[in-house]
Design a protein around this nucleic acid. Structure first.
Length: 584
RNA sequence: GGGACUGUGGCUCAGAAGGAUAGAGCAAGCGCCUCCUAAGCGCUAGGUCGCGGGUUCGAAUCCCGCCAGUCCCGCCA
């Protein structure tokens, strides 16, 4: 079952070739949804764009296409309007048949792609020995949603957590702990993760002030890199403790990730530089090995380098990223590598991709993409901080969302005189709280900054998770009230009668176009928009069209619309990493 | 100095391979529960799409210039 625009595209292609010859084959019919129901459901805008090429009037072109367009099974007779728009209105019988197919499919009529791609999604990426904070929120949530959409799309997805588990900071931390709290380096969990963060800060201060400490820290890094047993063990202890701490957050958010940190690429770094040298891309400048970039100038107007090896022989993160990109393409077989990293890194990725491309590490047909996102800001428009100016821990942020969801739920239960079990309350508060945080983030176009507001995300009205969850709950209400088993509705025959039914049906049938779009553009907010509109359209239908009291065959037909709405919501939300509730 | 991103009703945002009168939500005002949970639905009001040029049948969308905000630019990651 292909999407409706896809079906129409084929028809247009035939009509076009028929009317104007083979050379027009494959011309995009420029199909778009209409913005006004009086123009039908879809419009094709190609006649205007062909006017110059064919040296004919757009309306005449449109007429010739329409004369040869065989869409009578899908649409009412096409109409030509305005300067040459071809307007198409879907037929009732066609919609009914499509809905029946959708009903009978466990993927809601959406086939997996015929050309699956191996795709690496690099996201989350916290730093070892630090706690996850707001900064990791967007990458984790957006990355997970993108991975889920691509998985459903049929791609072979590798979810990689490129954790910061290497580099000078470990020399610093281990050196500091050795003098301040040696137990932490030999015994698991001797320190709380929060204390570790505090020690890290102190270590950083010492490092910046004390040259002797600096020297020792550098030596520790060298020891670590050369595999000194004691240092290595201390490092592993720290990594392990952090890892378990991260996992708690991932479990709460239901995020699957494979850890492959910076250290994984460590031993490949000399080879990376060597290969760049062999290709003549490396120039030594002030003792550092550099690749000079095309299209970048420094403050003095001279070409700007990407440093691949520091003058002290060490490597920095550009080299690690080059090694990672190369490994992912060569060894993992990635055809697409997607980096879900904040927008501030845009230049860095652009530079790394440029060097990798010049080195021939990104072959034809392989795509490396930075998927940028903006900052999380407080309601004052500044970077989100606690009242005392501290960075907000992700754990606290999630706790607070759940706490507020719970308080709101309890207030309503009291007002409505409802009695619910503690288990029910806890589960609803948890799902509502976490899904609100996720949805608020995902529903914005990720490229802009985003203003974080508990009040807005938890609101029961508007484009929020609770509003969508409620639409799903309403269907479950019908099912309980009427003792309906949606999985066994028997022989269904659709019958669309009222306007809200048509509107809902058409929206349901456009899911696959949206998912294709999200898979290619990597913009989860498009899916959110779709689901929000679906909820609105379902609520309008629910308001105007009684279901359980309707006469057959209308009753079953409406039950199918309910079922499809619920299943679409559930699927769509699951692709955003959001669970649904039976009652709330 | 160079570069990237952002600028759309009071507020938060959709809409960018050009398409018909620019869409939502919140907040405001007014309606709708003998009927599947009103956590809902309907109506009203609110916009020089930052500013100025250009391209064209047509521009929020493409090009150029300017203004404002955020961020990045050789040895941190």
């Amino acid at each position: 079952m292909s999407s409706i625009p896809e079906q129409l595209r084929l028809k247009f292609d035939r009509a076009l070739v028929d009317a104007f010859g083979e050379e027009l084959a494959g011309t995009d019919p420029l199909l778009a949804s209409t913005n006004n129901p009086k123009f039908g459901d879809y419009q094709a805008n190609l006649a205007m764009s062909l006017a110059k090429r064919l040296k004919q009037k757009p309306r005449d072109i449109a007429q010739q296409i329409v004369d040869r367009l065989e869409v009578s099974e899908i649409c009412e007779p096409p109409e030509i309007a305005g300067p040459g728009f071809i307007n198409l209105r879907l037929k009732r019988e066609f919609l009914e048949a499509q809905l029946q197919k959708m009903q009978g499919s466990d993927r809601l009529g959406i086939d997996p792609t015929e050309t699956p791609q191996t795709t690496v999604v690099d996201f989350s990426s916290p730093n070892i020995a630090k706690e996850m904070h707001v900064g990791h929120l967007r990458s984790t949530i957006i990355g997970d949603a993108i991975a889920r959409v691509l998985e459903f799309h049929g791609d072979n997805v590798l979810r990689l957590n490129h954790v910061g588990d290497w580099g000078t900071q470990f020399g610093m931390l281990i050196t500091y702990l050795r003098e301040a709290y040696p137990d932490a380096l030999t015994q698991p969990d001797a320190l709380d993760i929060g204390d570790l963060v505090a020690f890290y800060k102190k270590a950083k201060i010492r490092f910046d002030e004390d040259p002797e400490f600096q020297e020792t820290a550098r030596n520790t890094v060298v020891k670590l890199q050369s595999g000194d047993t004691e240092t290595r063990q201390a490092w592993e202890l720290l990594c392990d403790q952090s890892r378990r701490e991260f996992q708690k957050i991932y479990d709460r958010l239901d995020v699957q990730l494979q850890e492959r940190g910076e250290s994984f690429y460590n031993e490949m770094l000399p080879q990376v530089v060597e290969d760049l040298e062999k290709q003549g891309l490396v120039v030594e400048d002030q003792g550092a090995k550099c690749v000079f970039l095309e299209g970048y100038k420094n403050k003095e107007g001279n070409p700007q380098p990407l440093i691949v090896q520091k003058s002290d022989g060490g490597y920095n993160y550009a080299t690690t990223d080059l090694a990672a990109l190369r490994y992912r393409i060569r060894e993992d077989g990635a055809q697409r590598v997607v980096y879900v990293v904040d927008a501030g890194q845009g230049t860095h990725f652009d530079q790394v991709f440029q060097v990798a491309r010049r080195a021939g590490w990104i072959p034809e047909g392989v795509e490396a993409t930075h998927v940028p996102f903006g900052l999380v800001q407080g309601e004052d428009g500044k970077k989100l901080k606690t009242r005392s100016g501290e960075t907000i821990r992700l754990k606290d942020l999630l706790d607070e969302a759940v706490r507020r969801a719970r308080a709101d739920l309890e207030k309503r239960l009291q007002e409505e005189g409802r009695q619910e079990s503690e288990e029910f309350i806890e589960n609803v508060a948890n799902v509502v709280g976490l899904s609100s945080v996720k949805y608020a983030d995902l529903s914005q176009n990720r490229t802009s900054n985003y203003i974080f507001s508990y009040d807005k995300m938890l609101s029961l009205q508007g484009n929020t998770a609770p509003y969508l969850l409620y639409a799903f709950v309403r269907v479950q209400g019908i099912s309980r009230k009427g003792a309906i088993d949606f999985e066994n509705l028997g022989e269904v025959s659709m019958s669309l009668q009222e306007e809200p039914e048509f509107v809902l049906a058409k929206h349901l049938l456009s899911l696959s176009e949206i998912l294709d779009e999200v898979a290619s553009e990597l913009l989860p907010n498009r899916l959110c928009q779709y689901l929000f509109e679906l909820s609105q359209k379902f609520n309008q239908f629910y308001d105007k069209c009684p279901v359980l009291q309707a006469e057959e065959p209308l009753r079953t037909s409406r039950l199918v619309l309910c079922d499809l709405s619920a299943r679409t919501l559930k699927l769509g939300l699951s692709l955003l990493g959001i669970e649904v509730l039976e009652r709330m």
